[in-house]
Design a protein around this nucleic acid. Structure first.
Lengths: 326, 326
DNA sequence: CTGTTAGCGCCTTCAC
DNA sequence: GTGAAGGCGCTAACAG
């Protein structure tokens, strides 16, 4: 930057101003400076800049990207960040509290403008650290129940699962199974199961235990179909807590030559591209994951700008998409 | 950090050492410092640290995460970064040279240890900037043809597509179609098409134009099936440049009640989870995307450590996975 | 093994 | 509209 300044015949600070607030520099000076910058291919050092001003960085922790709609969310965040001139610092963690803690530490070390986390912040220690750091946090999560640290963006997974279960019952299905990936530490999944259970109870269906947990792969969905139909051969529909599982179940049916939805019906959750393209197309719950990502960034920047959204939740809503599989 | 030092009765530099190279500090001093750090919840400021030492950050540019195996690669990079104590700075771009330039500038501003790019660096300007910055680059890309700036990690998409086309011919298929997503600016896709064409030529098959480009969705795969079978009703197999397209084509067949592979056969590329789980399971080319991500980080750090891998390519290889769909 | 000194490159503050 | 001084928090380099 000194070089540029020398070449343009001005002081370094003027170059700084030319690049960050061009309107505070006279047009001629500006033009000359920009020419030199261009010629030299100068790229200002954000690291140095972030020592005095706060870094234009948003840290985010995401669960494994593989096999999930998380990629959509990351895309949304990335796009929104780009629109505001921010950068995404990405750390992956699983759903364990320890992994989360480590990831939060790693991110805070970069003094980001804010944090976006794909769940409620679990450990008290982490919450305290974040509070001490004075960094706003947006939790992309279940919005029912706990109060978020600052602000939560998401849907009520409880309501969504409840609505889907009711929807299935409304179509005449009596014995309704529920498949999920491991729930431990994932409040979104937990709320889906709670919603399902509540609906079953409200409907007065007496069906015993038709729940199963399987790995987060389509193979898991296939396995779930086997397990549940063995446990109760009269089961009529399987509600999967993710489209990937539903997809696996659908393929397993084809493998067995079972007609969907006549022999058994299947419903999913998420409305991934997959769900509409599979044949038969999968009845599912649509969630705008991309929008959640964008919205999270927007709200985070509002919080960082001093707006106090404390404790509120932003419900992006869901929609039951009725297709052929159930 | 001054606070911590004062409380522990040592100089700031000792705290610094205690945190970054604990073995250079006496056990007692170390213990006392760590206690204070713990008690205060101190998180060192990486931004400041990165002014003198180089930042433990790797910048990466990825194409849209949605609908692709890229998520696996990101996962691999993320895991490898975590293992080395590095952080991933993620920017998304499409395949255009302008987007790439902007993304590279944005990343270089953070003075990262290195860059990982999901293609060859396209523009001369960008290459020059990177060279000037003295930052090593690993290109995850086609390894045939152009010499990489420093080092490329990937496969020969040409060889892979050639091998698959030969494989299909070997199974007796005569009229072999080729579907890809838009090739413009994506050398991996281009090399797949070139490999396909070379194989067709070598086989002496005379079949006219059986190539089509469709959007990168499974719907695109369905559309491709319609287009190609209309263009040539006697087409026997469709080789899709991605599993997602192959999946769409398979679903379209089901919708039409066409038997796979008897009425028409389908092959994919990538061996996504999807490919093995779809029924019928999809014959495809397996590429270890996760491993590519990990390997890219490892090689990048070697380069950054002064190793000169200039111009070399690391071939992670591929494998033809023969399943039911072709 | 520990401390002193100096400075990374920019931006805030204040003066002109 | 422009510039001079100083410091952000940490760590290399050198000394003890």
């Amino acid at each position: 930057m000194r070089d540029i300044a020398a070449q343009a015949g001005v002081a370094p600070i003027t170059v700084s101003r030319a690049l960050s607030s061009p309107d505070k520099v006279s047009p001629e000076t500006l033009k000359k400076i920009l020419e030199v910058v261009q010629k030299e291919g100068f790229i200002p050092n954000n690291v140095a800049g972030s020592m005095r001003a706060t870094a234009k960085v948003i840290g985010t922790i995401v669960p494994p990207l593989i096999n999930s709609g998380i990629a959509d969310q990351v895309q949304g965040m990335s796009d929104a960040c780009a629109a505001h001139g921010y950068q995404l610092l990405l750390v992956q963690g699983d759903f364990s509290a320890e992994a989360e803690d480590k990831a939060i530490m790693a991110l805070l070390g970069w003094r980001p403008k804010g944090l976006i986390i794909q769940a409620f912040v679990q450990s008290k220690a982490a919450r305290k650290r974040i509070a001490t750091a004075g960094v706003p946090v947006v939790e992309i999560s279940e919005i029912r129940g706990r109060t978020p640290m600052n602000l939560a963006v998401g849907i009520s997974n409880f309501d969504a699962a409840y609505a889907m279960t009711q929807h299935l019952a409304g179509k005449g299905y009596k014995r309704i199974g529920f498949v999920s990936t491991p729930i431990h530490g994932n409040d979104r999944l937990r709320q889906r199961r709670v919603g399902y259970r509540k609906a079953i109870a409200d409907l007065g269906i007496d069906q015993g235990d038709l729940e199963v947990e399987v790995p987060i792969t389509s193979k898991g969905g296939a396995a779930a179909l086997s397990i549940l139909t063995e446990r109760d051969p009269s089961i009529e529909v399987i509600f999967c807590s993710s489209d990937l599982l539903a997809f696996g179940a659908v393929q397993e049916c084809r493998r067995r030559g079972w007609a969907i939805p006549d022999r058994i019906a299947i419903a999913g959750f998420g409305d991934m591209d997959l769900a509409s393209q599979t044949y038969p197309a999968i009845t599912t719950v649509r969630v705008d994951r991309y929008g959640m990502g964008r919205s999270a960034v927007d709200h985070l920047l509002s919080l960082a700008a001093g707006e106090t959204g404390s404790g509120k939740s932003v419900d992006v809503g869901f929609e039951i998409i009725d297709r052929e599989s159930a």
